[in-house]
Amino acid sequence: MTRRSRGREVALQVLYQLEQNSGVMTTDVRRFIDRRLLRDRPLVEFTTGLIEGVRGNQPQIDDAIKQVAENWRLDRMAAIDRNILRLGAFEILHHPEVPAKVAINEALELAKRYSTAQSSRFVNGILDKVLQLQDPAPRSDAEAGSEADPDVAVESPAAAEAEVAPPAPIGEGPAA
């Protein structure tokens, strides 16, 4: 597992925890992240950025998921799948430096590890449609800049550039 994959895994655990128990203290979340990532400062910052980004952009992310999730209401999805989708959609919509294929593959790996056998297909279908919302005309590998994530080699298009909204600090984002 790459370092960033580990960071995404911890981000998913925190997002799930915050959704299930919105009363979790910011200090407890930070302690959990530090402990799980062995105080690797760059990785802690990456992970914290993912969490704050998802929480700070959650209404837009949820709207994108709702728009493409045919016959599925967000509140009826399994909580773990919902948070995997949020994490993947955040990277697709707000991190153009991360190739979309990387964001989707990372989400699929999380679904395989933490959810049911069918979840990876579900996550793949939803995130592929989110990507199509973002970038309806796929670009070539050269245009995609597929070397953006140093931990993963990619051979497919990246998401279109998007303006990144500043993340809300952990504990101050919208309630899940």
Rank of each mutant, 00 (worst) to 15 (best):
N71A: 13
L108V: 15
L87F: 05
H94Y: 15
R35H: 09
D62A: 08
W72F: 14
R36A: 15
A78S: 08
I33D: 01
E91D: 10
Q60R: 07
R55A: 14
L43T: 03
L85A: 06
I84D: 00
G53V: 01
A89Q: 04
R86H: 06
R30G: 10
N83E: 06
N83P: 04
T27A: 14
F90R: 02
A69R: 01
A117D: 12
D28K: 13
P99E: 00
N21V: 11
D40A: 12
D63G: 09
L74M: 09
T47K: 01
Q20M: 14
F32Q: 05
P96K: 02
K112N: 11
L87T: 04
R73F: 15
L38F: 14
T27L: 15
L85K: 00
A78I: 10
A64F: 03
Q20H: 06
G49A: 12
G56F: 02
R113D: 09
I33E: 01
I80L: 11
V54M: 07
A78R: 02
A100P: 02
L110C: 04
R30C: 14
A69Q: 02
E106F: 10
N71C: 09
H94V: 00
A117W: 12
W72E: 06
E70Y: 10
N21W: 01
D81T: 13
V68L: 07
M77G: 04
R30I: 15
A103V: 06
Q60V: 11
V44W: 03
T47S: 09
D40N: 13
N105R: 06
S115T: 10
Y114C: 08
S115M: 03
R35M: 14
N105G: 08
I92C: 13
A89N: 06
T26P: 02
E45Y: 07
V68K: 02
S22M: 10
N105L: 12
V98T: 07
T26E: 14
L37S: 02
L50N: 06
L108K: 11
I61L: 11
R30H: 08
Q60I: 10
M25Q: 14
D63W: 11
T48K: 02
R76E: 11
Q67T: 14
V24S: 12
D40F: 07
V98N: 05
T27S: 14
R113E: 11
H94P: 05
G23R: 11
H94F: 15
A64N: 03
K112M: 07
L50A: 07
A79C: 08
L37D: 00
A117T: 05
T26C: 13
D75C: 08
I80W: 03
R82H: 08
M77N: 00
Q67H: 10
